[in-house]
């Protein structure tokens, strides 16, 4: 993973810095704020996709990634309380789509992102895992993941290649 400083040179991550070109993918996504008590995660994802308007393959990727990220925020950062908020913004990045997702919930355990390794599937049927797919999917569907805790907020950056070629079946 590239260092955080490369992704965030200004250090001004929470202050609504102007959004740059969209790297050829859709249009700039304004920093959208959502109240999780009023909007379901799925509706938020749909709003983001409508604004970004990516090509169909990238749209599917984004739908999956954002769904997984938002579900994690709802379930873990906010403990299922449904009283939080989340902000999603697009940040300038050459040739790729970079999203910044922030929330005011609990910090990631240990201050780091889950490893999200592959789930072991070779055991007997009764030992097959019923969870642990979320962060594996996020890591499979994005190129870089960056996490910071600042001033009581979680910041997650995800880079997604604009071409989508990597993600085609």
């Amino acid at each position: 993973m590239t260092s955080r400083s490369e992704m965030d040179e200004s250090g001004d991550i929470g202050g609504g810095r102007p959004l740059g070109p969209a790297g050829g993918v859709g249009q700039a996504l304004p920093a959208l704020s959502f109240d999780l008590s009023q909007s379901e995660a799925r509706a938020i994802v749909v709003s983001c996709l409508d604004v970004l308007d990516p090509d169909p393959v990238l749209r599917d990727t984004l739908r999956l990634v954002l769904s997984e990220v938002l579900n994690n925020i709802v379930e873990h950062a906010y403990d299922g309380a449904l009283t939080g908020e989340v902000e999603i913004a697009q940040e300038p990045a050459e040739g790729r789509l970079r999203l910044r997702i922030s929330d005011g919930g609990r910090a990631m355990p240990g201050g780091v992102l889950p490893r999200g390794g592959p789930v072991a599937l070779n055991g007997p049927r009764d030992d097959l895992p019923e969870g642990g797919f979320g962060w594996y999917l996020i890591r499979q569907l994005s190129d870089r993941q960056c996490y910071e805790r600042r001033a009581g907020r979680n910041y997650l950056w995800l880079d997604i290649l604009s071409s989508g070629a990597k993600y085609r079946a």
């Binding site: 739908r63 997984e68 049927r125 895992p129 019923e130 969870g131 797919f133 979320g134 999917l137």
Partner: peptide, 16 residues
């Protein structure tokens, strides 16, 4: 048209 990680887990659970 859409299954997320929770849905995958639920399908595995249904099998188990």
């Amino acid at each position: 048209e859409f299954v997320d990680s929770s849905g995958l887990g639920a399908i595995v659970a249904a099998m188990k």
